[in-house]
Design a protein around this nucleic acid. Sequence first.
DNA 1: TTGTATGCGTTATCAC
DNA 2: GTGATAACGCATACAA
Lengths: 342, 342
Amino acid sequence: MATVRDVAKRANVSPITVSRVINQSGYFSEEARMRVEAAIDELGYVPNRLARSLRSKRTNVIALVLTDITNPFFTTLARSVEDAASDAGFMVIICNTDESEVEEQKNLHTLLQQQVDGILLVPACSTSASVDLIQKQKTPVVVLDRRMPAGTEVDIVRGDSEGGAYQLIQLLIGLGHKRIAVLSGPRDVSTAQDRVAGYQRAMCEADLEAAANLVYYGGFTQPYGYEMAQRALSANPRPTALFATNNFIAIGCLKALQDAGLRVPEDIAIVSFDDLPSTLITFPFFTVAAQPAYEMAKKATQLLLARLNGEASAACQEIVLPTEIIVRQSSGQPQRSDPGKG
Amino acid sequence: MATVRDVAKRANVSPITVSRVINQSGYFSEEARMRVEAAIDELGYVPNRLARSLRSKRTNVIALVLTDITNPFFTTLARSVEDAASDAGFMVIICNTDESEVEEQKNLHTLLQQQVDGILLVPACSTSASVDLIQKQKTPVVVLDRRMPAGTEVDIVRGDSEGGAYQLIQLLIGLGHKRIAVLSGPRDVSTAQDRVAGYQRAMCEADLEAAANLVYYGGFTQPYGYEMAQRALSANPRPTALFATNNFIAIGCLKALQDAGLRVPEDIAIVSFDDLPSTLITFPFFTVAAQPAYEMAKKATQLLLARLNGEASAACQEIVLPTEIIVRQSSGQPQRSDPGKG
DNA sequence: TTGTATGCGTTATCAC
DNA sequence: GTGATAACGCATACAA
């Protein structure tokens, strides 16, 4: 494979002039440019970015570390990051952690060795270990979608999980529901915690404190949704409404209700977090708190790029974007007042 | 940031010994190992892969270039590639081309500069330009999901589009349909071509040659599906069944039929290519030819890794995996024999 | 506007 | 089992 030196020789210039032409940096004459470009074409020269980056200490690569690439919510994030990064001349490496802290650390180690210029992290758990690891290498990092433990010095861009949950539960309460169960994600993920907190606030404000304990913990996947729904159904008295804390839980939950012969929303209502893209869904059905996923990731990427260009202010930011409540069939009509036992 | 030299100094060994310990290569004493590992811990040393790769001419990174990361079919491919590559100690860079040849070339240029060890390519079009570009750099490449022009010397792993389409149309014909329209992808994508070819073979074999021309070309997206369905509906006489050549087209098509006040399958039947994952779909509805996406990508990755380890035989392979026909509601019941006009 | 010398952090090669 | 030296391909610093 040809190198700058080969190109330089053929163009009768020095290697550094070739470098200048390629990177549009410094001065070079029009004639030099033409000779260099001709030589590049003739030799089929492809610059070696490893060498370039080793020398310049810049890779123009950022990484997106997320928990589940099969979830459309994260696909949207990925797409948004790619769009924003690509506009700025950056490549994106996407890594999957499967909500596993071990996988997360493994991926981060590799990425840091790879000398990525910055990292967007959807943390798999609520400890600051990963952020610490990244910051020890002086690599800029922005946390996406989830909170960090109080006191962690890091930029965060996320949706308002607590507020969205609060509004969803208010909606259910307004429809007459009093026994509402939550099918939650992992205990140590902030979005799960916040959505439960929003639920509890709404319940308490409506003087339904006693009922505010119907919380089932599992994970943000369809099988967990199925299993948690089954557990919720066996409660006595049975909940009249279920709050699925993400899209996959909602789908698993709906399957469980179908299998139990229950109709939604006639027999039991469902509300959920995270909308499914209309490109995937033929019959939009769930009442949801939709997060602005694309916008969120765009803001996070812009912040990261600003950081690694030294443009952002020193202080860490926490940007919280509001959710939008979209009412569809699954939440049903107003309940009759308590029909008595049975 | 600490370098091998810093570690070496602290451990009282030479840099190369540090390298040997890190890479488990060559000889070193147990004592040297311990001293080196201690020094690495104390200094928080992180190896620089850029330098490593520059010297060793190996990055342990492969790239997956695909056309639409928002499509679950490709998400499954991506997941599969990651799993297989990760087992072998490789990272995966995923790039999106949006079915654009220009984007594809742009991405490939960057990846080649990045010195990736190999490339898995879902080509956006049927020319061999991209494969040529990659091979000129002596980078191993495996084409995934789609064919190349006859004569192109390259490994290919793909599904049997022609066969799957043939079976779907046979199914419709068996149900009594005679006017079947195809909502196809781009003209210059092999999967679109093959699915049309399978349709035509089935139609001709059933002596429905005259009707075998109801082919609408567009793209593999939901909006195209919507638009092609509208065009198909305005044909006179109207088709009694539609063949959507991928999952997104099927969804757009269904929307168009809903908006036109038509019931599926009572008024018009639909069959489609590519299943949607059960984790996303609460009511599986479409009769489909499902491709073994995970298996396909796994085979392709293994072949690529074998190639770049020099393990594979010299001759190029074309591996074609069969599709599975899954019958659901959308294809409907047997048609009554022609009910006459009106 | 152009070129020379040098070094980025690592590993291949060969000598000890 | 260990180390000195050079080289990977490019860009920074400075000189011309």
